[in-house]
Design a protein around this nucleic acid. Structure first.
Lengths: 338, 338
DNA sequence: GTAGGAGATGTAAACATTTACATTTATCAT
DNA sequence: ATGATAAATGTAAATGTTTACATCTCCTAC
């Protein structure tokens, strides 16, 4: 492998000049520049970005930490980050935590050892010690899908409480009285917990008694949704509507319900959360709370870069989420329980 | 930021010793070791993996190149790679090509500059110049989802021709005579092309005339599937079955068909490709060709590491794919066209 | 022709590790 | 105690860039 020194020798210049033609070609005379680029070709010179990072203290790499690449929502936000990073010639190291806090800690450490310039984290626990340490040690990072208002951390997310509230309100307005919630484990993510808060408050505001039997916490997966649906629909007084804390749970629930002979949406209304691409391709098309994942990633990356370069103050951005009404929710026929 | 030197001074040892307690603790006396680890704590020492990579010529990083993280298939194989890498304390740089060869080239270059130890590539074109260069320059890499038999490249994939053949054969056995193919653009991936070959050969072997009107090439996406379905079903003599070259196309096609009033599966049988998780959650559940994406990624990573460490000979692994019959395909009622 | 100055290039140190080799220290049989 | 050997530690070079600063070159206006 040839180095900048080989090129320099061959071109009869100093390494400084070679470095300059790489990093700021305008400052070197065109004749010299040509000699250098020529020499590079001859040597089949390959730039060593690692060595550069070593001296400049900038790796031009950021770390992205997500629960799992397998959830389209996180794939989408990651894509947003990647696209923005790409524009800035920054590469992305990616790691999955599988919703495990320990893994999150491990990834943060490894990425820091790799000298990443910053981190984009979709955390399991925005109040954990890891993030505090990052703040204390001045490591630039931004949180995705979480927002701890007014704190020392930059974050971009949505109002999960509001999302949960709206989803439930939609069902209430359709005259549902027994509304279950299929929630991702609260321990896996505080998002689920906040959505549940919204759900609960909405019930209360509408004078619908809260029934703890109607809350199931489960793994965030299709199968989790399916199994939970079956449990809920086997209750003595089964619910007439589900609010699922993500679309995978909702899609799983659809299948579970059908397997028990429920007709959708006649026998059961379902609302999901996220609005993954495939939501509108389900039968019935899934009513859900849309959140702008790709934009969140892109914006998060933008904020991170600002933070890296200009050390701007932390901000918390709350993106709009919205209810997308499709076919999976319908009015509960009066005369049911009411 | 404190360095190994600070720690060394504080502990009253040489940097070599500190390095040793980091990399092979057994060789240093427990008393010294304790003094060193103590000093590390005091200094709040953070290991610099970049500097290490710089001297050892091993970055402990591999690059993963996929068309798009947004396709669950590639997310899944990437997860396989990540999981295996993780076990070996290797990090993953991820890049999307969006099916553009130019982007593939760019990524390979950037990743090489970052001194990755190897690459896992899901390529758009297994015969392109990029890969040749990698072979020539001895860069360890493995191909996913492609296999160029007996060549100088390590690859793990499935037999796409066979997959296409089987999918079509399934439809033929169900007495379908007008079988359309909704294919991802041949220019985006040779996989689609090979699947089409299988499709075509199967038709020929069964004496079904090939009708070029029944092939649509489109973008690999839900919307591409939907639009293509609408075009095909608006033909004068519409097909009674679709073979779609991936599940997203199939799911999109389902929606397109429904929008034109077709009942599924009665009026139209559909078979997809990949068996993404959600395939069995569709209504009707999607018949498809299953390929083991996660395993492919894991195996690919394993082969890559073998190649990096022991420079083993290139191998091409053909994984099993299989037809998974579900509900989206049914027997074509005789008396139709036959 | 020359002074002045801008622009181009060179010099050399710095960056945080690892590692071959050299040296010191500990261990143990005699 | 001594020598031989093994184990532990130290020394110092090497890695491929960047960059502050110094120097040189070239041009322009007089």
């Amino acid at each position: 492998m040839s180095t900048i020194l080989d090129v320099a020798k061959l071109a009869g210049v100093s390494t400084a000049t070679v470095s300059r033609v790489i990093n700021s070609p305008q400052v070197v005379r065109v004749k010299t520049r040509e000699r250098v680029t020529g020499a590079m070709k001859v040597c089949n010179y390959k730039y060593n970005a690692l060595a550069r990072g070593f001296v400049t203290k900038r790796s031009n790499t950021i770390g992205v930490i997500i629960p799992t690449i397998n959830n389209q929502v996180f794939a989408e936000s990651t894509r947003g980050v990647q696209d923005y990073a790409d524009l800035n010639k920054i590469q992305v190291l990616l790691g999955n935590t599988y919703y495990r806090y320990g893994q999150e800690e491990k990834l943060v450490t490894t990425f820091r050892e790799k000298q990443v310039d910053g981190l984009v984290i979709t955390t399991t626990n925005p109040r954990g010690a890891i993030l505090k340490t990052l703040v204390d040690e001045g490591v630039p990072f931004v949180l995705l899908y979480s927002t701890v208002k007014g704190g020392p951390m930059t974050a971009v997310g949505i109002d999960n409480y509001q999302g949960g509230y709206r989803a439930t309100e939609h069902l209430v307005k359709l005259c549902h009285k027994r509304i279950a919630m299929v929630a991702g484990n609260f321990s896996s993510s505080d998002r689920s917990f906040h959505r549940w808060h919204g759900y609960r408050q909405c019930l209360k505001n509408n004078k619908i008694p809260y029934d703890s039997e109607l809350l199931i916490q489960t793994e965030y997966s299709l199968i989790g949704g399916r199994d939970s649906a079956k449990k809920l629909l086997s209750l003595q007084k089964p619910p007439t509507a589900f609010f699922c804390s993500n679309d995978y749970l909702a899609i799983g629930a659809m299948k579970g319900a059908r397997e028990l002979g429920f007709k959708l949406p006649e026998d059961l209304s379902i609302v999901g959360f996220d609005d993954i691409r495939i939501a509108s391709y389900m039968t019935p098309e899934l009513t859900t709370i849309r959140q702008p994942s790709y934009e969140m990633g892109k914006l998060g990356a933008e904020l991170l870069f600002q933070r890296i370069e200009h050390q701007v103050k932390p901000v918390q951005l709350m993106l709009e989420s919205s209810l997308v009404v499709r076919e999976s929710t319908i009015r509960q026929p009066v005369g049911g329980i009411s």
